[in-house]
Amino acid sequence: MAVTAPGSTLPAAAPAQPSGPESRRWYRKRTSESAPLTRRPFRKWWRETGWRHLVGAAVVVFSVFPLVYVLSASLNPGGTLISANSLFSNVSLGSYVELFNRPQQPYAAWFLNTLVIGLSASAGSVLLGALAAYAFSRMRFTGRRMGLITLVLVQMFPQLLAMVAIFLLMMGISEVFPGLGLNSQIGLIMVYLGGALGVNTYLMYGFFNTVPTSIDEAAHIDGAGHARIFFTIILPLVSPILAVVALLSLVATLSEFVIASVLLRDPERQTLAVGLFQFISQETSQNWSVFAAGAVLAAVIPVALFLLLQRYIVSGLTAGSVK
């Protein structure tokens, strides 16, 4: 036991550091009280982080301006892009009303066709890609590596190069199964499924490799088969990449024009990308306001899906690049 001299004072005992969740909060409070706040010079702040704010603001302006311009053109009753250069100078909803009052150009039918074709193609792409990725990731068979490389190499060539072959194939199918050939939405969905299988399989393959194989082995010991493991164990674990693939497939289907314009002939069966082109394809009857209004309404679907699936997008794209 220490003995102090008469008249001396004992030093104040330092407060005990709490344990548990309060320790981090206690440490921040102690450091903020002990260390005085110093303001960084402007040059140092600009060199370290300031220029990033300027770049971010420029990127936001560059990205938002086309959207604002299209919205302004859709509200402009003039029907030309020249009169829409002054943003929101004339505001009218006449283009949106006219969009649904044209019997020769049924926008409502186009919107419904695009929604059905897009959702069907994206759901089929997710299912087929997940099945193929599970097989390449978990099973060992002859030609596995060569098959995976072939899927990647085939995607190097654009689908436009196979347009003639696709047209002749669909024409031949029309003679046997008219419901799957030309001017058939089901046939168009089948073409989309075949074109997106390779890239979706390779994207999911990297994500499936991040799931430990010990989970499969434990399920096999308990008596589960490949189908039960795939649908009840693996799919819930890889839900981020499923959402990403579904979103990318849907956006690609909504904006696809060439194949849909060749395979679909009747106006009632066409998609939005093909139908909207009719508003500006004829030189004597171009109406850019109605076209812009249709484009604004067509953008509602992908924007809503982006907002709904945004928490899966980053994790799904980054985790799949680990292996």
Rank of each mutant, 00 (worst) to 15 (best):
I233H: 13
Q286K: 08
I215R: 12
D266N: 14
N101L: 03
L81V: 12
R145P: 02
F291M: 09
L305N: 05
P18C: 09
R24F: 15
S281R: 12
R40M: 14
W51T: 05
W26A: 14
V154E: 11
A16H: 09
T213M: 13
F277K: 05
G118F: 01
F231N: 00
P267W: 10
V3W: 14
V91I: 15
A218H: 08
Q17C: 09
P77K: 07
G124D: 07
Y205M: 03
A243F: 15
G198E: 01
V244C: 03
L160I: 07
V290R: 14
T114N: 12
V126A: 09
L151V: 03
P15G: 10
S92M: 00
S89P: 02
F100H: 06
T271N: 04
G124I: 02
Q286C: 01
T38F: 15
G206Y: 07
F277E: 04
G198S: 04
N101V: 05
A16Y: 07
A130Y: 06
V211H: 01
S261N: 10
G129E: 05
S125N: 14
S72P: 01
G225Q: 08
S72L: 00
V154S: 11
Q105T: 10
Q105K: 11
G179V: 01
W110N: 02
Y202G: 01
A252H: 03
I221A: 12
I149E: 09
Q270G: 04
R269M: 14
A165E: 00
W46H: 06
S23Q: 15
I280K: 01
S122V: 03
P11I: 00
T318Y: 09
F291H: 07
E283P: 10
L203Y: 12
A292E: 09
G320W: 12
E256G: 01
G124F: 05
Q17L: 13
V164Q: 11
F167Q: 07
P11R: 06
Y202F: 15
V126F: 07
V152W: 10
G143D: 03
A121Y: 07
V238Y: 09
L307K: 04
F136I: 05
S137F: 00
N183S: 11
L160S: 08
L151M: 14
L67V: 13
T201S: 03
F111C: 06
L276S: 00
I82N: 10
K44G: 11
G179S: 11
P11W: 02
G206P: 07
Q270D: 03
Y27Q: 13
K44I: 13
V314L: 15
I173N: 07
M171E: 12
L37N: 08
Q278M: 10
T142D: 10
G179L: 09
A73E: 04
V152K: 02
T201Q: 02
N90R: 15
A273S: 14
P21R: 12
A298W: 06
A35L: 14
G79S: 10
T213N: 13
S249Y: 03
G294S: 05
T142Q: 12
V300K: 08
